[in-house]
Design a protein around this nucleic acid. Structure first.
Length: 672
DNA sequence: GCCTGCTCAATACC
DNA sequence: CGGTATTGAGCAGG
C-alpha cells in the first residue's frame, strides 16, 4: 500500500522548477538544503553588515529610555505616537523623535481624544506586547512626539536564506496577512453595525483601515530595508486581494502608483532605482505576453485613466531606466480580473524580471509614452498568473487542457456537491479509487446520546446576534455573511436539525459541504496530494476531515491489525492563530469559550475516507483544523473542519499541520 | 517638517 | 449592471 500521508514536510521540498535534478531522486534534508549563511548583497556599500533577523518586524516607534510610548488608536494621521515623560529634557534620550511640550490647548484635545476613543495602549518596548495604560497616569506630563515613518533608503538584496529563515519568514508573512485580513473584516463589520444604528451613513474602507491600524503599530514588514529582488516569505504565485496588502508585506510600497522605486534624492549616487511594478492593464500601450512584457511608464493620464499628455522621464520612469542601466531586477506583480474573488480582481506575484530595453514611443492616443521591455529571469517557479489562467481553462474543459492523467472524474461518486477529480500523470498508481468515499465523519450512536442536545434556536426569520446559537458561540457567530471564518475557536456550534432557522442561515457553513472543485493528484515529492482548481480565499471552508470514529478500545484493536488511524487531538491548534487581534487591541480576549475536553477518539480511514485524507503535512501549512458541532452537541465528538489559512492559489498543494513532533523522526498522527 | 500634488484603489451611489 | 463621484492613503518632492 502506498503511503497515505507522506513523511516529508511540504515546505521543505525543493521547488521543482529551480531544482529539477533533485525532484526524482530520494529526498533527504541534508542533500537538498546545505546550510548557507544568509547574506545581503549591497549595491553601494561594500561592507554592509549582515541583516539580523528579528523576532518581530522592527517597529517604527522609537523607544524612550525607561519610558513607555503611548500608542493611540491612530485615527489622526498627524499624531500617532504619544509618550509620557517626566519634566526635564526628554530629547536627549531619543535621536529619532521630536518632542513638543504639550500646550493647554493640546492637552484638551488629547483628553477629548481619549474620551472618544476609550483605551489608550502602550507598546512595551521589551516584550512588544501592547498593554493598557492605567487611567490615572494618562493625562499628567504628557508629551507628544512623532517620528516620521519613512521608508528606509538602504538598498539591499537578500540572498542565501537557510531553510530556517525561509520557514521563519514564510510564517511571519502569513501571520501578518492573517492579521490584516482579520482586521479588515472586523473593522468592516464594526462599521456595518454603526451604519445600521445610524451613527454613520457611509462605510469606510476596511482594507485601508486595516493597513493603517497595522502601520501605526509598526506591523508592516520590510520597511527597515529597501529590498531589491525577492521578498523573504513571499513565493511566486502568492495571491493578494487588496492593493494595500502589498504595502503591508513590503512587496510594493505604493498605494496606487504602479512603479515603486527608491527616489534619487535618497539613493547613494543620486539616481533612482526601481524595485517593483504592477501590471494591471491600466495603460493601453502595455503588451503583456508573460515572459516578455512591454510596460508603459506612468504619468500623462487624466483622472479617468485616459492618456492626455506626454509622459516625462522622471520619477518611476527614470527609475526604470536607471534599473535597466545597472541591470537590476524588478519584481513584477500582475493585477488580473478573476471571477470569484471578493474584489473581482487579484494581484499575483510573478517573480523577477530584468529590463532589456527602453524607448520613447508614440502611444495609441497620440501622446508620447515611455516603454520598457522586460524579460522574465530564467529558472524561476512557474508564473502565478499563467497558473491562474491555466486553472480557469481547466475548470471549463479539463480533458482538453490535460488530456492525459485523469483517472477518475469524481472519486466521491456524486457524494459531494462538486466532483473530486483523481489525477496522476506520473506513475501507474490509482490507489484512491479503491476506497469507499465518505463525505462526512461517522460517529457512534452513543455520541448522539451523551451531552446536551436537542435544543436549538427558534429564529424562523434567520438568526440574530443574540439568539441561542450565537450565545452558545460566545455571543457571536463564527462566520461572516460571506461564509468566511472570522476567528478560530476551541469549538463552533453551528445551527442544526434542532434549530428552526432556514437552511440559508450563515451559521450552517460547514454542513453544506464543498464549495470548490478539488483534485487528488500524484506527486513525486509528496505521494498523493490535494489541490483546488479554484482560488480558495483565506478563511474559506474547505472540507471535513472524514473517517469512522473509534473509541479508545476499538482503536487499540485496530492498531493491532495495522490499520490506519487518525488522532484528532494531535493536530496543532492552528485555529488559535486565525483572527487573533491581540497585537492590535489591548483588550482583545482570545476566545476560550466554549472549551472542549481533551479528545479521546481516533478515526479509521483505512476503508472509507474523503479527500482530506490525502493532504500532505507541513509545519507551515495553508490549511487549519477547526472543531465544529452541528448534528449533536457532544463536546467529546466534534467534527474536524478544514479552513484556508491564506489565499491558496489554484493548483497549489494544500497542507495541514498534523502536529508532527519532528519532521524527520517524529511520529505522525497516523499510526500503523 | 510641512505642505502639495500625484497615483494602473476600492467602494458607494445613481 | 456600468459609469462616476467620493473617500482616501502613501509617498515623492519642493
Amino acid at each position: 500500500m502506498g503511503s497515505l500521508i507522506p513523511f516529508q514536510d511540504l515546505n521543505l521540498l525543493p521547488d521543482p522548477a529551480t531544482s529539477p535534478s533533485t525532484a526524482a531522486t530520494a529526498i533527504t534534508p541534508a542533500l537538498i538544503f546545505p546550510k548557507i549563511e544568509p547574506k545581503l548583497e549591497p549595491f553601494d556599500a561594500p561592507t554592509l553588515p549582515l541583516q539580523s533577523f528579528p523576532e518581530n518586524p522592527s517597529p517604527n516607534f522609537f523607544v524612550n529610555s525607561g519610558q513607555l510610548p503611548f500608542v493611540g488608536p491612530g485615527s489622526n494621521p498627524n499624531d500617532t505616537v504619544f509618550s509620557q515623560t517626566p519634566e526635564g529634557s526628554p530629547e536627549e534620550n531619543n535621536v529619532y523623535s521630536e518632542y513638543y511640550r504639550i500646550s493647554e490647548l493640546f492637552r484638551t484635545a488629547f483628553s477629548k481624544r481619549m474620551e472618544n476613543l476609550g483605551n489608550i495602549d502602550v507598546l512595551d518596548p521589551d516584550s512588544r506586547a501592547i498593554v493598557p495604560v492605567p487611567e490615572e497616569t494618562r493625562i499628567s506630563n504628557v508629551v507628544v512626539s512623532r517620528r516620521r515613518d519613512q521608508r528606509s533608503s538602504e538598498l539591499v538584496r537578500v540572498t542565501d536564506l537557510t531553510i530556517d529563515h525561509v520557514r521563519y519568514f514564510r510564517d511571519l508573512v502569513r501571520r501578518t496577512r492573517m492579521l490584516y485580513d482579520a482586521l479588515r473584516i472586523f473593522s468592516m463589520m464594526e462599521e456595518e453595525k454603526r451604519r445600521e444604528v445610524g451613527l454613520i451613513t457611509r462605510r469606510s474602507r476596511g482594507d485601508l483601515r486595516a493597513a493603517k491600524l497595522m502601520k501605526d503599530r509598526g506591523l508592516w514588514l520590510n520597511r527597515d530595508k529597501r529590498i531589491v529582488g525577492s521578498i523573504p516569505g513571499i513565493n511566486i504565485g502568492d495571491l493578494f486581494l487588496f492593493r494595500m496588502e502589498l504595502c503591508v508585506v513590503g512587496l510594493h510600497g505604493q498605494a496606487q502608483a504602479g512603479i515603486d522605486y527608491l527616489p534619487g534624492s535618497r539613493s547613494s549616487n543620486g539616481e533612482p532605482i526601481a524595485t517593483s511594478i504592477i501590471v494591471s492593464g491600466g495603460y493601453e500601450d502595455d503588451q503583456d505576453e508573460g515572459d516578455v512584457l512591454i510596460y508603459t511608464g506612468h504619468g500623462g493620464q487624466d483622472k479617468f485613466s485616459r492618456q492626455c499628455d506626454h509622459q516625462k522621464l522622471e520619477g518611476g520612469n527614470l527609475a526604470l531606466e536607471r534599473s535597466m542601466h545597472y541591470g537590476i531586477e524588478v519584481r513584477v506583480i500582475r493585477g488580473i480580473k478573476y471571477e470569484g474573488s471578493v474584489t473581482g480582481k487579484v494581484y499575483v506575484y510573478d517573480g523577477l524580471y530584468k529590463i532589456h530595453d527602453s524607448w520613447f514611443d508614440v502611444g495609441k492616443s497620440g501622446f508620447g509614452v515611455y516603454k520598457y521591455k522586460l524579460l522574465r529571469n530564467e529558472g524561476q517557479a512557474e508564473m502565478g498568473s499563467a497558473i491562474l489562467r491555466f486553472a480557469e481553462n481547466l475548470r471549463i474543459s479539463p480533458l482538453t487542457v490535460r488530456p492525459v492523467g485523469y483517472l477518475c472524474e469524481d472519486i466521491s461518486t456524486k457524494k459531494e456537491n462538486v466532483p473530486v477529480f483523481l489525477f496522476n500523470d506520473i506513475d501507474g498508481d490509482n490507489e484512491p479509487m479503491y476506497y469507499e468515499y465518505l463525505p462526512r465523519t461517522v460517529f457512534p450512536l452513543h455520541a448522539y446520546n451523551l451531552g446536551g442536545n436537542g435544543s436549538g434556536c427558534d429564529c424562523v426569520a434567520g438568526c440574530t446576534d443574540d439568539c441561542v446559537c450565537a450565545r452558545r458561540n460566545g455571543g457571536e457567530f463564527a462566520y461572516d455573511q460571506n461564509g468566511f471564518l472570522l476567528r478560530g475557536k476551541p469549538v463552533i456550534f453551528e445551527c442544526g436539525s434542532f434549530c428552526r432557522c432556514p437552511p440559508t442561515c450563515r451559521n450552517r457553513l460547514t454542513q453544506k459541504g464543498l464549495r470548490n472543485r478539488f483534485e487528488v493528484f500524484r506527486s513525486r515529492e509528496t505521494g498523493w496530494g490535494v489541490r483546488s482548481l479554484d482560488l480558495i480565499q483565506a478563511g474559506a471552508f474547505i472540507c471535513e476531515y472524514a473517517g469512522v470514529v473509534l473509541t479508545r478500545e476499538q482503536a487499540a484493536l485496530f492498531s493491532m491489525n495495522g490499520d490506519t488511524l487518525i488522532y484528532p487531538n494531535r493536530f496543532t491548534d492552528r485555529w488559535a492563530e486565525w483572527g487573533d487581534l491581540s497585537k492590535v487591541y489591548s483588550d482583545y480576549v482570545r476566545p476560550m469559550h466554549p472549551s472542549i475536553p481533551p479528545l479521546d477518539f481516533a478515526m479509521d480511514v483505512s476503508r472509507m475516507r474523503n479527500l482530506a485524507c490525502y493532504m500532505s503535512h507541513s509545519s507551515c501549512p495553508n490549511v487549519l483544523v477547526q472543531f465544529v458541532l452541528y448534528d449533536h452537541h457532544n463536546l467529546l465528538f466534534p467534527r474536524l473542519m478544514l479552513f484556508a489559512m491564506e489565499n491558496i492559489p489554484p493548483l497549489r498543494e494544500l497542507s495541514l499541520d498534523y502536529g508532527v513532533a519532528d519532521e524527520w523522526t517524529g511520529k505522525l498522527p497516523i499510526c500503523n
